[in-house]
């Protein structure tokens, strides 16, 4: 109960950062969403996201051991 109360208080407070101020958005993915935000004069930065390169199983295992 205490945990729930704390989390609720926390969320209600932290959500104000989103709901009480102008939106400052980082868009990761589709251009159409970037354009939609721009059309509404919302500040937005677009990320040129690409999937990480696929490694073969042997390399992945090796990296797992090293890291």
């Amino acid at each position: 109960m205490t945990e729930e109360k704390n989390s609720t208080t926390n969320m209600a407070t932290t959500a104000r950062r989103l709901l009480d101020y102008d939106l400052n958005v980082v868009n990761i993915g589709l251009d159409i969403f970037y354009n939609a935000l721009k059309l509404q004069n919302i500040k937005v930065v677009d990320v040129n996201w690409n999937p990480p390169p696929k490694l073969d199983k042997e390399t992945e295992d090796l990296l797992d051991k090293i890291l």
Partner: peptide, 8 residues
């Protein structure tokens, strides 16, 4: 930044 929009 107060919102990240993810569509990946």
């Amino acid at each position: 930044t107060n919102l990240v929009l993810l569509s990946i």
